[in-house]
């Protein structure tokens, strides 16, 4: 089975990245420096307009190749400098799942959707067929193969979108607010699918999300952006406990907020429900 070895070496390296959209006066990203290790599950968050989506677009070459604009600094993904490689080339390293499921599914059946990218890469039919079966199975949507994308639910649509990107066997999967139109249960299920890809395939995940409640126990690393630059980053415990996260209008999990608002909170952060129960039972 195909698997990316988990080892501590950066797969994404961003150095002094600044970017301005064509025609815009203000920079959307200013001086971002960041490195992400292979196999990490990174959650990227921040208020709307903070530059999260722009940063993601830099990682698969949509910026600068699709959007144009003014870019400074370097983005290196799987040893490829995005400036020198076409989006189609980068697509085999970086899969991108967008917010609106409706606008990223073009085919009239799930099967045809998943093979779309593979056909574009002109892979031999046998390999396409093999990858199709693998992607359907990995995401658990074999039953949907003949359905058309507008007959299935939003959660299923996002799974199809993930499968169609996964079939291209990228090392990195970027998901830009994939759950924003889903109901809570569907969102939770989708996060589980993503976490599974991270754990079993060693895929590096970059997830842009507002729903941190459901993520705090799944993710390794949280990055908060504000005004086009990185503000806070670290493991979820560190990030959520810093008061500035709250001040920046981030939806920190309610359990953490409850801890912060206690009259005489214990010194050690109560991060999960279990932490709380343990603490209250002890005193």
């Amino acid at each position: 089975m195909w698997r990316v070895e988990k080892m501590v070496s950066p797969i994404i390296e961003i150095d002094g990245l600044s970017y301005t959209y064509p025609g815009a006066k203000k920079q959307s990203l200013s001086n971002v420096t960041l490195s992400i290790d292979k196999g990490d599950f990174v959650t990227l968050t921040g208020t709307s307009g903070c530059g999260k989506t722009t940063l993601c677009r830099c990682l698969n070459g949509l910026i600068p190749h699709f959007y144009g604009g003014e870019i400074k600094g370097d983005v290196v993904v799987s040893n490829l400098n995005v400036r020198d490689h076409a989006i189609s080339e980068l697509a085999q390293q970086v899969g991108f799942v967008f917010q609106n499921p409706e606008n990223q599914l073009f085919a009239l059946s799930v099967e045809r959707e998943i093979v779309f990218g593979l056909e574009n890469l002109a892979l031999p039919p046998d390999e396409i067929r093999e990858r199709l079966e693998w992607a359907l199975k990995t995401i658990g949507i074999e039953a949907l193969r003949e359905r058309s994308p507008y007959e299935i639910s939003g959660g299923q649509q996002q799974r199809v979108a993930i499968a169609s990107v996964l079939a291209m066997k990228p090392e990195i999967l970027i998901l830009d607010e994939p759950t924003s139109s889903l109901d809570p249960q569907a969102a939770k299920n989708l996060f589980q699918v993503i976490s599974k890809l991270n754990k079993t395939l060693g895929l590096t995940i970059i997830l842009v999300e507002h729903r941190l409640d459901l993520l705090s126990t799944l993710t390794d690393r949280v990055i908060i952006m504000d005004g086009g630059s990185l503000r806070i980053e670290g493991n979820p415990r560190e990030v959520f406990s810093s008061m500035s996260a709250k001040l920046m209008g981030i939806g920190i999990p309610k359990i953490v907020r409850l801890y912060q608002e206690l009259e005489s909170p214990p010194e050690k952060l109560l991060f999960s429900i279990e932490d709380f129960v343990g603490y209250l039972k002890r005193i």
């Binding site: 190749h65 699709f66 076409a86 697509a91 574009n120 990107v165």
Partner: peptide, 8 residues
């Protein structure tokens, strides 16, 4: 574009 449209 992200799915390699027109790559080959």
């Amino acid at each position: 574009e992200s799915r390699a449209f027109g790559a080959k």
